[in-house]
Structures are given as structure tokens and as C-alpha cells.
Computed example of a mutant assay.
Amino acid sequence: MEQVLEVYCRPYEARHPVICMDEQPKQLIDQVRMPVPARPGAAAKEDFEYVRQGMCVVWMFVEPLAGWRATPVTLRKTAMDWAHQVREVVEAPRYAQAERITLVCDNLNVHRLASLYEAFAPAEALRLARKLELVHTPKHGSWLNMAEPELSVLTRQCLDQRLGQMERVSELARKWAEARNRRQAGIDWQFRTADARIKLKYLYPKIEV
């Protein structure tokens, strides 16, 4: 826990950026009948009946101190998917000069450097691994990942509606991210190590003197 919180205390350094990542499923749902939009004197109407069109996965990569995020969308969240999304971040033009990227993620079993070796040739996997420092949140403390509240904002502001095609989800998530990136919307993280020692003292070992 303290490792994650100490990472958040690091000052901004373009050569050593800190990026938080997470992902969430999104159910694809189509309308059976077109909804009726609101008009003066009448509320919007939406039929309760819908059609399931499967699932997709919305990824979140956010650099809190720089006010940047990326929101790719895929069909699955396998080790291969994670590896390819991480490579996209490592090779992004904004990180061309980065010497090492700290990636904060939860303990999902695919969030491991070993996933790079499942997806790429050994030389390429090693090249990417050398650019990464993985920091995992505690097993029952994934809420310490700043990507979680950012995903919540994306859902509430953009994706909390019936969307039947993955392409539409991808388009809306991309436009949302571009708008927030233009504003350089950051994250004002207030939870510190001292707070953890007080509020989560039950997680700390008890040393008998």
C-alpha cells in the first residue's frame, strides 16, 4: 500500500512518468425501438425492452500529473490484449523521451511483465519490460489506483447509456478523452501514507516489543 502512495508523491518528471491503468467491461445493448427525445412539455421516453449484443472492454491509461489519458476499447482483456495496450502507451510519441514508465495497476493475473513474453518475441518483450516499472495496488486495495475514479467519470459522463456497437463505445470514449486532455484535467489525490496508517491500521502488522 505504502509503495503506491509513495509513488503518488513523486514530483512530475517527463523522463519518468507515472501512469495508472485499469479496465472495465461494458455491456453492448441495442434499442428495440428508437427512443423519443424530450420536448417542451414532454419527458424523454425509452422502451424497457432491449437487445444484448455482447461485451467489450474499456481500458483506462491516465497520467494524473500531466492531465493525459487514453481510452482504447477491445473485445477482451487477455494477457495478449494487455501487452498490446501497454506497448501502445510505451511507444506513444509523448513518451518517446521517457527513460522509464511507472505503471500502477491492480493484481489481475494478466497485469504482469510475463504477459509481454506471451504476446511478443523475447527481444521485443525485453525491450518493453526494460521501459516499465510495475507497481501493484494491494490485493484488497484496488481503489488506490487513480485509474478507477477516472473510469467512473468516463462511465457517468459518457458511457452510461445504451450502446450496441463496440465502435460506438470506442468513438465516444476517444472523444471524451480528447476533450479532457485538451483541458489537461488532472486528479487531485488527497489520500496519503499518514492517512493510511490511521484509517487502515488493521492492515498493518502488529509488532510486539
Results as ranks from 00 to 15, higher is better:
residue 152 S to A: 15
residue 150 E to N: 03
residue 151 L to S: 01
residue 54 G to S: 07
residue 88 E to Y: 02
residue 68 W to F: 07
residue 193 T to A: 09
residue 136 H to K: 12
residue 144 L to C: 00
residue 192 R to W: 09
residue 95 Y to K: 03
residue 99 E to I: 07
residue 33 R to A: 06
residue 122 P to K: 10
residue 95 Y to Q: 00
residue 164 G to P: 05
residue 3 Q to I: 10
residue 118 E to L: 15
residue 4 V to T: 11
residue 188 D to P: 00
residue 170 S to D: 14
residue 64 P to W: 01
residue 197 R to C: 14
residue 86 V to C: 09
residue 158 C to Y: 02
residue 157 Q to C: 08
residue 187 I to V: 10
residue 151 L to M: 15
residue 72 P to R: 02
residue 199 K to D: 06
residue 14 A to K: 15
residue 110 V to E: 11
residue 184 Q to A: 15
residue 52 R to E: 10
residue 190 Q to E: 14
residue 20 C to A: 09
residue 145 N to V: 05
residue 40 P to W: 08
residue 42 A to G: 12
residue 113 L to R: 05
residue 128 L to R: 04
residue 195 D to I: 05
residue 209 V to Q: 14
residue 52 R to D: 11
residue 45 K to N: 08
residue 39 R to V: 08
residue 66 A to N: 07
residue 14 A to N: 06
residue 7 V to L: 09
residue 12 Y to W: 10
residue 5 L to P: 08
residue 196 A to H: 13
residue 162 R to S: 00
residue 175 K to C: 10
residue 30 D to Q: 07
residue 143 W to T: 08
residue 92 A to W: 01
residue 67 G to A: 12
residue 103 L to I: 03
residue 89 V to A: 03
residue 66 A to R: 11
residue 116 L to K: 00
residue 30 D to I: 00
residue 28 L to P: 04
residue 58 V to A: 03
residue 206 K to N: 04
residue 16 H to K: 07
residue 57 V to W: 05
residue 205 P to N: 06
residue 203 L to N: 12
residue 144 L to N: 04
residue 160 D to K: 15
residue 113 L to I: 14
residue 49 E to Y: 08
residue 114 A to Q: 15
residue 31 Q to H: 15
residue 11 P to H: 07
residue 2 E to N: 04
residue 51 V to D: 13
residue 91 E to I: 06
residue 77 K to Y: 11
residue 98 A to V: 04
residue 110 V to P: 02
residue 41 G to K: 11
residue 147 A to Q: 00
residue 19 I to M: 03
residue 209 V to N: 13
residue 150 E to Q: 06
residue 126 L to V: 00
residue 161 Q to Y: 04
residue 179 A to I: 03
residue 139 K to F: 12
residue 106 D to C: 12
residue 155 T to C: 05
residue 126 L to S: 11
residue 140 H to I: 02
residue 96 A to Y: 06
residue 10 R to E: 13
residue 168 R to V: 14
residue 126 L to C: 06
residue 178 E to W: 07
residue 9 C to I: 00
residue 87 R to W: 10
residue 153 V to G: 02
residue 8 Y to V: 02
residue 74 T to P: 01
